[in-house]
Design a protein around this nucleic acid. Structure first.
Lengths: 151, 151
DNA sequence: ATAATTGTTTACGTAAACGTCAAGATAATT
DNA sequence: AATTATCTTGACGTTTACGTAAACAATTAT
């Protein structure tokens, strides 16, 4: 059966969590995701990750949902979306909200914008490449004496 | 007649100066090149532009050669070469030297490296684009109920 | 002569995304 | 109990290419 409109669209639906995501401390989580603890704390610092639960001693504990959320953030970052842009997402819609639904259209919009930006960058780089090659050729020609020095 | 090996390869040979480049002050030069005075002083500060002549009052005066050199720097910058990379150029070969020749092979090398980098960036962006589109499609599919929420 | 413009040096500020101590508290291990 | 590992919160450092302001000198215009 396909998803009915009753089902909730959560991070889980996107990330299909397979392994047993037991609550972990920051160091373990960082290692697991290939980032540093500083990065995780930084995301919390700028409000991208909501304040996580704390143990008795004050150590951060990350639940499965926290982990999914962090993975989500890393995925967007991997796609080239800046932390600032993610903030826009979080501003308009509560990224904390388990119900992923209302966030999604905005996300699609941002992704679309981003595809446009990427296309633009590619175009710029292509034309840049042409220019560099042309400049290179010109210098080389002069060096080889295939071109007059003065017009 | 084409260039003989006796002729010197100078910035002029690259930039084919046409207008009468009379010595100018920093403000005028900046306006002429569409940059700020801060930029010019900065280039001097980091040693990319050699210290220019000064007037009685201490004001910088830029000769035709200074201007050509600055144009050269701006050209390289336009091609995406960092000021740091330009420094490498200047380290190995005296960029002040009027004889542009010995600098050129290194320049060609840097340009070649740069073309490689640009190619790499283009490839990365292309694959990024694919990923974004795929991710976008996936989310959209879930939203539209065309995909099962759980595997 | 005064005002306005343009110049000078010095030096701190900016953006992005963390890196890297420092100093101390807990927790786990031996 | 002592060592070791991991955690905590500041808070300053890093990179790139300048922006911006302060305080003052010199030149040009009125």
């Amino acid at each position: 059966m396909y998803s009915s409109s009753e089902e909730k669209l959560t991070y889980k639906a996107i990330f299909m969590t397979t392994a047993t995501d037991k609550p972990v401390q920051i160091g373990e989580l960082a290692k697991k995701l290939g980032i540093t603890t500083r990065t995780i704390r930084y995301y919390e610092e700028i409000g991208l990750m909501g304040s996580s639960e704390r143990q008795a001693g004050g150590a951060r504990m990350y639940s499965r949902d926290d982990i999914l959320r962090l993975k989500f953030i890393l995925k967007l970052k991997e796609l080239g979306i800046s932390l600032k842009e993610m903030h826009e997402l979080a501003e308009n819609f509560d990224i904390n909200n388990q119900n992923f639904g209302p966030l999604t259209p905005k996300l699609l919009e941002i992704l679309d914008q981003h595809i446009g930006k990427v296309d633009q960058k590619i175009a710029n780089l292509s034309s840049l490449r042409k220019e560099i090659v042309a400049y290179r050729t010109r210098i080389d020609d002069i060096l080889q004496g295939r071109q007059p020095l003065v017009k």
